[in-house]
Design a protein around this nucleic acid. Structure first.
Length: 868
RNA sequence: GGGCGGUUAGCUCAGUGGGAGAGCGCUUCCUUGACACGGAAGAGGUCACAUGUUCAAUCCAUGUACCGCCCACCA
């Protein structure tokens, strides 16, 4: 066979993926006879493109699914795409703007048509990218949140929650995104630290009077809607003012009361707070406690409106423009007493980035407290577990402090509320227009209905994802076999937005948690620990990495950096290069195996135990240990250590030691069989992590079956283990290293043989390996000591006089220091009496070892100095 | 303001109550029957700081400093 010297992933990977896909290796049918292993893919936004973050979240899902498929389980990774309401709508509005068309000009129906067309065109792109990275979900089962089946599930959930009294319509303070022109939920806010200013403003007791009370604010434009000032009830400075009235500057057209409320922090500013219930959450609560009115002065365009209260010349101004004008007018009227810099967190919409305006509005909400209780219980009694466990406290804390969820959005792309209104404003909630008409006729005696134009928050449909994609509310075989799933993997930033809501809705509608394990994966940063962003120019595109180094290399590079407890990965491209080199190493070890002159056995079998050489026994023992370790590590989601474990086995044990050992004459009889066996197993252990190269190599070796994708996971019990021989080989390795070190010291050319005295009680196979691996000319001498440790320790290098002297002196110094340390330790009565006996024994053993080594090194040093 | 992580070799990071580790980078040697995307040898660290617990602390506890993440209605 004539293989090129360098592995070529660019040619191999797409070819293999196409074969897997065409043969349906990723597809599964529900099979109650086997244990299920189901992962619901967090649906990427239809607007999304692959980024490095998908490496840390989606890649582990692929690894786990492949691993459990090899274990013979009913394993399936269920993919899909999210319609991403606000994000997609924003993209479309921007595209329309290029054609100078406003959303309203197009009309709802045609706008939604375009959204569908856009989703069909671009939605497949991330799927193609995932394929390029080797991800193998069950593509035949791919779902889109706007599909008819999933939309029907959304309507069913809405109607049922409404009829159970868990969905209601009401006027509440909501977060208004003036850019996207819609409400957003609390969980979708992002608080951005900004350098702002804090203004102190005097509210006079009488219009034109010099006396008054000072407040501090960062939002002077809202003062037009003030309904009171509030002070802390126990604040002596303001006690006398409670109950008095002040006038609102600069217009001085309205006066408002001063009230006392516990929520006011007396230590902030002047200790007095202006109350604007319609434009601030805290003010809303205080206002409610005191029965204050709730006038608005900011409209949906974020402009000042005089609809509720007089706003003078500010009417129609943008909110930030109005702020400047009001400040100027306050200054002129002598009401602005102080301006100071102030750093504070501003609520922005995490989709549009716009500063969110708290507004009073009539919207739809989900009553969360009754749903949160069972979700909390499920966590507390261990039905839902987090990895790492500390993330569970985030989940718990959010559910304990849960607030009602605003679910109505004023955009067109999404699931329209299944709500209709009669001409006199009564609500009719139904799963279809026909049913709505029926109800309207029956209950309200009318067939004249108008549908609510709003759509649902995207996360409403995401919240039912684990069962809507299984066909719920139909009782499908998928739903019976595959709900609940086994594990959810996701980033920590959507524990509230998504994880908690899936648990709540899963428990409510299917009476069971949607998954038992939640694995929170780390965020990927650049090597300097900065978030990757376009503006910083530090974004690394995984598709570029896959092109440059291969998808396997990209995968291994990410996986090796994942740590169980870590919340971040600092990614550097050199890791990818390193993994590419690793793949090349695998490739070349394979070339060596395939080029053996004796050829490979037709089937994967091992020689009889008696025929196995020392090296064979060692590598088989290590294979077995590695195989046990890999299962344990993958079972507890420790991808980083798993990747590291197989990486080290392949490179440092198999390639550097075993393959070299097979070049010895004595090892030739068994090597073809053992190399094939171990390499076949190693490829299967590595396959979930690096699917492509392992398939390519596995197919070239003796193997069973058509593809490694559905091959069985190595069973450690099928690999013989020889613990004593393995230990002996490890001792031999240390001896080889010692001799190589001396060779370097002597300055021998690698091809020159070093003369080695090997005691007679070192077994012949070891002496032969020493000769090969250390490139030595072995001369057998007298037996030394009474065990293998002693015999190997007595192996000595013959060198020209004086050459090794410095080396021996260094060793001597080190040994003397160790012996001193050990003697002082063992001379310490407290240590000998209090430390564990095994620790003391080990310390004695170490000391003895150092002493006999000291004697040998002293002798060698003498020999090196004295004339021969 | 509250909670949670982190601080170990030049860089990115493992790790352990009892002899400090890996990869990259660096130095030297080497194209020996697969691999220079390779092999061998080597240099390099008061394990952030302070106090405490312990026979023994890089590891445990407390505190400090710095970095980061999440939450929160100081306007």
């Amino acid at each position: 066979m004539d293989l090129p010297k360098h592995y070529d992933p660019q040619a191999t990977e797409p070819r293999l993926y196409e074969r897997w896909d065409k043969n349906g290796y990723f597809h599964e049918e529900p099979d109650p006879a086997r244990p299920p292993f189901i992962i619901c893919m967090p649906p990427p936004n239809v607007t999304a493109r692959a980024h490095l973050g998908h490496g840390s979240t989606y890649l582990p899902m692929d690894v786990l699914t492949r691993y459990h498929r090899m274990l013979g389980e009913n394993a399936d990774w269920l993919p899909g795409v999210d319609h991403a309401a606000i994000a997609t709508e924003a993209v479309l509005v921007r595209e329309l703007a290029k054609e100078r068309i406003a959303r309203e000009d197009l009309g709802r129906e045609r706008f939604v048509e375009r959204a569908w067309a856009w989703s069909r065109t671009y939605g497949g792109e991330i799927e193609a990218q995932f394929r390029r990275l080797g991800f193998g979900p069950d593509w035949q089962r791919s779902r889109f949140t706007m599909d008819e089946g999933l939309s029907a599930a959304v309507r069913r959930v809405f109607v049922r929650l409404y009829r159970e009294g868990l969905i209601y319509r009401g006027t509440r303070l909501i977060n208004w995104d003036p850019k996207a022109k819609t409400t957003v939920s609390d969980a979708e806010l992002e608080y951005v630290e900004q350098d702002g200013r804090l203004w102190r403003i005097r509210y006079p007791f009488e219009p034109g009077g010099a006396e008054g009370i000072e407040i501090a604010t960062t939002r002077p434009e809202t003062m037009l809607a003030d309904v009171a000032l509030a002070v802390h009830p126990e604040d002596a400075r303001h006690a006398a003012t409670i109950g008095r009235r002040v006038w609102i500057p600069p217009l001085l057209q309205r006066s408002i009361p001063i009230v006392a409320d516990e929520a006011v922090d007396p230590d902030f500013g002047s200790g007095a707070l202006k109350i604007t219930p319609a434009h601030d959450p805290l003010d809303y609560e205080i206002g409610a406690r005191h029965g204050l009115p709730t006038p608005s002065v900011i409209d949906l365009e974020a402009r000042i409106t005089g609809a509720d209260v007089p706003v003078g010349p500010y009417a129609g101004l943008d909110r930030f423009e109005a702020r400047e004008r009001i400040l100027a007018d306050l200054q002129r009227g002598g009401f602005l007493t102080e301006t100071q810099p102030h750093r504070h967190a501003v609520a922005t919409s995490d989709r549009s980035g716009a500063v969110v305006e708290p507004l009073l509005s009539l919207q739809w909400f989900v009553k969360m407290a009754p749903l949160a209780k069972p979700a909390l219980d499920a966590y507390r009694d261990g039905r839902v577990r987090f990895f790492p466990a500390r993330h569970g406290r985030t989940y718990e804390h959010w559910l304990e402090n849960i607030r009602d969820w605003n679910i109505s959005r004023q955009i067109w792309w999404g699931h329209q509320l299944p709500v209709w209104y009669t001409p006199d404003g009564r609500e009719v909630v139904a799963e279809s227009a026909a049913e709505a008409l029926d109800i309207a006729q029956r209950l309200h005696g009318t067939r004249e209905l108008t549908r609510d134009p709003d759509t649902l928050d995207t996360w409403f449909s995401s919240g039912i994802w684990p069962f809507s994609i299984l066909g719920w509310p139909e009782q499908t075989a998928e739903l019976r076999c595959w709900y609940p799933s086994q594990v959810l993997l996701t980033g920590g930033e959507i524990i509230f937005l998504w994880v908690a809501r899936m648990v709540m809705l899963g428990l409510h509608f299917l009476l069971d948690v949607p998954f038992s394990d939640v694995v929170i994966t780390p965020t990927v940063f650049d090597a300097a620990g900065r978030k990757m962003s376009k503006s910083l120019g530090n974004v690394i595109d995984p598709m570029v990495l896959a092109e440059r180094y291969g998808a396997d290399a990209f995968r291994v590079s990410i996986l090796r950096q994942m740590r169980l407890e870590s919340q971040e990965i600092r990614y550097q491209e050199s890791r990818c290069e390193e993994a590419r080199n690793f793949n090349n190493k695998i490739w070349n070890a394979t070339r060596y195996i395939l080029a053996l002159p004796e050829g490979l056995p037709a089937a994967m079998t091992l020689p009889s135990e008696g025929a196995l050489t020392l090296a064979d026994r060692w590598i088989l023992t290590r294979l077995r240990e590695t195989s046990v370790a890999m299962s344990e590590l993958l079972n507890r989601y420790d991808f980083g250590v798993a990747a590291e474990t197989i990486y080290r086995f392949v490179w440092y044990e198999f390639c550097d030691w075993y393959v070299e050992a097979t070049k010895a004459e004595a090892n030739r009889a068994t090597r073809a069989a053992v190399l094939s066996f171990v390499w076949n197993n190693a490829m299967r252990l590595l396959h979930p992590l690096a699917p492509f190269i392992t398939e390519e190599v596995w197919l070239a070796l003796p193997h069973d079956g058509k593809t490694i994708v559905t091959a069985t996971w190595p069973d450690p019990l099928e690999v013989p283990a020889f613990d004593d021989d393995a230990r002996g080989f490890a001792l031999l390795q240390r001896t080889v290293e010692r001799v190589r070190n001396a060779r370097a010291e002597i300055g021998l050319h690698p091809r020159e043989r070093v003369a080695l005295d090997v005691p007679a009680n070192v077994p012949e196979p070891m002496a032969a390996l020493l000769a090969l691996l250390a490139s030595a000319a072995v001369e057998r001498g007298e037996a030394a000591g009474d065990d293998l440790d002693d015999a190997l320790a007595a192996v000595t290098v013959r060198a020209p006089r004086g050459v090794l002297e410095e080396r021996y002196r260094k060793q001597l110094a080190h040994l003397l220091a160790e012996i001193d340390r050990g003697e002082r330790k063992l001379g310490n009565a407290a240590f000998v009496s209090k430390a564990a006996s095994s620790v003391v024994a080990k310390e004695r053993e170490k000391l003895d070892g150092y002493r006999s080594e000291l004697a040998r090194v002293e002798a060698a040093l003498r020999a090196s100095k004295e004339p021969a």
